[in-house]
């Protein structure tokens, strides 16, 4: 579904990604872990071209990310959830969700509203459709952000540290929504520091450090039988 070939990314002199090769299969849940500054968020952002790789090739659902129209096509199929939610503050919850289906997919309003209401039920916020983002808690905002991304009926969902900006007691409600998505067979790439979640939900775990993919494997292989010293030392510090 996603194929990443020899991807490099430079920010000026900073070499953030140093030749990443990875593959994400359909319906697979891949969790990317690693220390801050290891390039995991940058890699995720390269998948929908919010960051343009300096070198290398990314193919999403058979479409190579080469020109603007391809990129927009891919973005329609790839939902993204951000650490800081990035809801549109001037729009109600419902308006946040129906905007992209209506402008990009040209979905009629009545249909878009129906989709949005179903999604709000799914993320447990059916009663909040007329609320504005600032009236919601962080956890609620993030669930709206997930619903907003899902309204485009994406084939792939990217999560960039979705719980890092949340108060601890709100982490679970967001992870629960993500878990149910995974069980429905959504293809997902998740950057997170929630190791328990990674272990429980991930089909495969990628460990990154200093712009390189150090090790990958099943959660069991990574968390219990890591081969690389760097992986072991990272996990020993956080588990």
């Amino acid at each position: 579904m996603i194929s990443i070939k020899n991807v490099h990314k430079h920010f000026g002199k900073l070499h953030v990604l140093k030749g990443i090769n990875a593959h994400i299969a359909e319906k697979e849940v891949v969790v990317i872990i690693g220390p801050s500054g290891s390039g995991k968020s940058t890699l995720l952002r390269c998948i929908n071209y919010l960051e343009e790789p300096t070198e290398g090739e990314i193919i999403v659902d058979g479409i190579p990310l080469t020109n603007e129209s391809n990129i927009n096509k891919v973005r329609e199929e790839v939902g993204m959830v951000f650490q800081r939610f990035n809801l549109f503050p001037h729009k109600s919850v419902l308006e946040n969700i129906i905007l992209a289906p209506m402008t990009v997919r040209k979905t009629p309003k009545s249909e878009a509203v129906k989709i949005a209401q179903d999604l709000l039920v799914k993320v447990g916020l059916a009663d909040k459709e007329h609320a504005y983002p600032e009236q919601l808690s962080g956890g609620q905002q993030q669930r709206v952000a997930i619903a907003r991304a899902l309204a485009m009926k994406p084939k792939i969902m990217l999560f960039d540290e979705p719980t890092s900006a949340l108060d601890p007691e709100m982490v679970k409600e967001v992870l629960d929504v993500m878990k149910s998505l995974a069980h429905e067979g959504m293809t997902m790439a998740i950057v997170t520091h929630e190791m328990g979640f990674a272990r429980e939900v991930g089909d495969r775990v990628l460990f990154m450090d200093e712009g390189r993919l150090v090790e990958e494997g099943t959660p069991e292989e990574i968390f219990s039988h890591a081969k690389e010293e760097r992986t072991k030392s990272f996990l020993s510090k956080i588990l």
Partner: peptide, 27 residues
């Protein structure tokens, strides 16, 4: 306007112009 607003719009498949019109300019 926070950079994340443009990113959110673009990540939903909206073009730069659509994001400008519906998200950035009203704010």
């Amino acid at each position: 306007i926070d950079k994340g607003q443009m990113e959110a719009g673009r990540s939903l498949g909206m073009t730069w112009g659509q994001t400008m019109r519906h998200i950035i300019l009203p704010q």
